[in-house]
Nucleic acid binder design. Structure first.
Lengths: 208, 208, 208, 208
DNA sequence: CATGAATGAGGATTCATTCAT
DNA sequence: TATGAATGAATCCTCATTCAT
């Protein structure tokens, strides 16, 4: 067997083990909170020994970062609006919101819950998250909004704030769901529609 | 001095001391996060001894609950929309958002940050918060929306979800600001206007 | 009112307050054990404030000593065998045991329980107790035994050990009762008789 | 190496470590008393870290229970009177007392001191001790006494109380020794003889 | 690599004691 | 004297991290 092949297998094994640990950590952290959860809890959930975790992660915080990174990756993997951009705004929004929600659903709300909770009190994580996740999103969105506004498809307004309001709506709904709101959980599938409707026409505007 | 008078002074002293401690706790918890902050940190910030805290609060968690309760109280104090209800929707929204944001400003974002962060991972706190803060808000709002819809001032839609979307927008903007978004912080004063605009007409609708 | 009279009243007030506190301490210490009981527990039981205790006793240990001293005093008050010495041995023993048990009954088993428990692990208290209570008892008893042995009323044996065995029997029965032995508690009144019987004739000897 | 063999070694290691800790605890608790002794004291005496104790014992109280249990075990190991029962009463008593004292000697008076002291103020421990140690002893003794009484070897009396008096004598001598009585300590070896003598014939009866 | 026993720093909490009122 | 709020040293216990096997 060639060295390269061996290395590849090694890498895959390591990646697999890392994922196994992160899966366990995600479950446990979401359940008990990052601080209340112990390494032993995570190890037990992963079916390995305490010490083994430290072979794959430098320390407890590195687990958190690992969870955040996986979140970023799946985020990026989905964030391809290129094809959608050509269609009409209505379709675009529906698609955008659906994609965004799917990321959450896939990763499980759990990862989001953990990161969100820590992001609020951990300065390092906050900056990292904001720069890697929030800002890129805004930058991407900015180009679309500008184009639509220039071509008169939407009326003129403060783009920066509008973008943030729309993002916030999705984010807020997520938080509300994580806080245990049953209604939102049950209507989760309808969000792309109702959000698009709201964003495009408001509560007074006419429905086409 | 009468017993009653003595008791009153006593009560005020106790309340003052409790507030002094909660102020310190709010600052420290917001800075370091609830779990990373120590009782000693809080005591030092309050300028008292560690043990003194335990005269006024049963344990560290009780400090958290104390912060949450003060948030509730100031929330309730402001939550009088009665006068506003008679005016037009546009004015109502502007007023509603302004009041809601003022609460946050007064209490300091700090209290919100702490509670929000813990609410996501602490089941007890979550239930308490949802029942005491979120649900009452929705119930109140429900009556207004129903009235407006019935009188044709706004178009027909899923009230429960719409309410949640609007609340979520405010909540999400708050989270985004707590995550360090400079734009939102700078435009904070304009929120009542831009939110109202968005909620009423959407991004496509006509501005009156 | 004369100074002397005033002083006397003062003294009595102080003594009364000290006793009030010692009564409470005895109850509480017996209930929870010296170490598990807090000064606050004692103060509450005495119906006074924490700080007041420190006006009458230097510290928590002084309460223990106070209890021990009251035990000694009531012990000494009762320890007058003079009249009994002239009667026959049988009557003497019955009387001796009865007196000894009465002390315990009056003081309440509680004081004994507390002192005994602490005496086993507190060196200072141990020495104090042994010198003030145990040794004097043995010295007194020694004279009687010697007299009886010389006059042939009892057979010759190791006086020191015999005295200790008899004392130990009473002490042991007390401990067993404090440990919750129901039989001993119920038969407590009969102890003077059965002990005397046992000590004089053993289990094989003839009863007169 | 087979699993079974591994497990066995593991068990022995754990048992050894537990004993090491209990030995240290016994020494320290006897010296300072259970409450005055700190976990750090015990750890230092055992030559291990504080935290290690908590791997083998749930908490400080569990150490106490561990000491009590070892006492019970060595008690049970010695408590085989079967062979002795066939011989004459005189021999039986000598043997019985000797065995009982040997247990104390082996375990070290220390364990007894600790347990006795706590037994007086700790309700849980008291009940546990009484049921596991005291009652079984009485029940066993009861059968012998009944047999002897029925066969006329000893005179008739209240068996329950007599048993308790004899037990109490041993217990009391133990307490007296723990309280620092030099005489009893020096004559400890003679106890089987003098106690038997006393129990069988009393102080007036004839010696055979 | 995997393990899990051992470590010991760190932190919440208690409570004897003091002292201003 | 009496009070009880305030103090802060003391202590139990937890748990992230290390390392010998």
């Amino acid at each position: 067997m060639s060295k390269t092949s061996n290395d590849l297998i090694q890498e895959q094994l390591i990646a697999a083990r890392r994922n196994q640990i992160l899966d366990a950590a995600t479950t446990i952290f979401a359940e008990k909170g990052f601080h209340r959860a112990t390494i032993r809890d995570v190890a037990k959930a992963a079916g390995i020994a305490d010490g083994t975790i430290y072979i794959y992660f430098e320390n407890k915080t590195a687990l958190l970062m690992g969870i955040l990174n996986r979140l970023n990756e799946s985020d990026e993997r989905e964030a391809s609006f290129e094809e959608a951009a050509d269609t009409d705004i209505n379709t675009f929004f529906r698609k955008y919101v659906r994609q965004r929600l799917e990321v959450f659903d896939q990763m499980g709300m759990n990862a989001v819950k953990i990161v969100l909770s820590e992001v609020l009190t951990n300065t390092d994580l906050r900056d990292m998250y904001y720069q890697h996740v929030v800002e890129p999103t805004f930058e991407l969105a900015l180009t679309y909004f500008q184009k639509w506004m220039d071509s008169g498809l939407i009326r003129r307004f403060d783009v920066q704030m509008t973008m943030r309001m729309i993002t916030s709506m999705v984010l807020g709904l997520l938080v509300l769901r994580l806080m245990g709101d049953r209604t939102i959980e049950e209507q989760w599938q309808k969000l792309p529609d109702v959000i698009t409707d709201m964003v495009l026409y408001g509560i007074q505007g006419e429905q086409p």
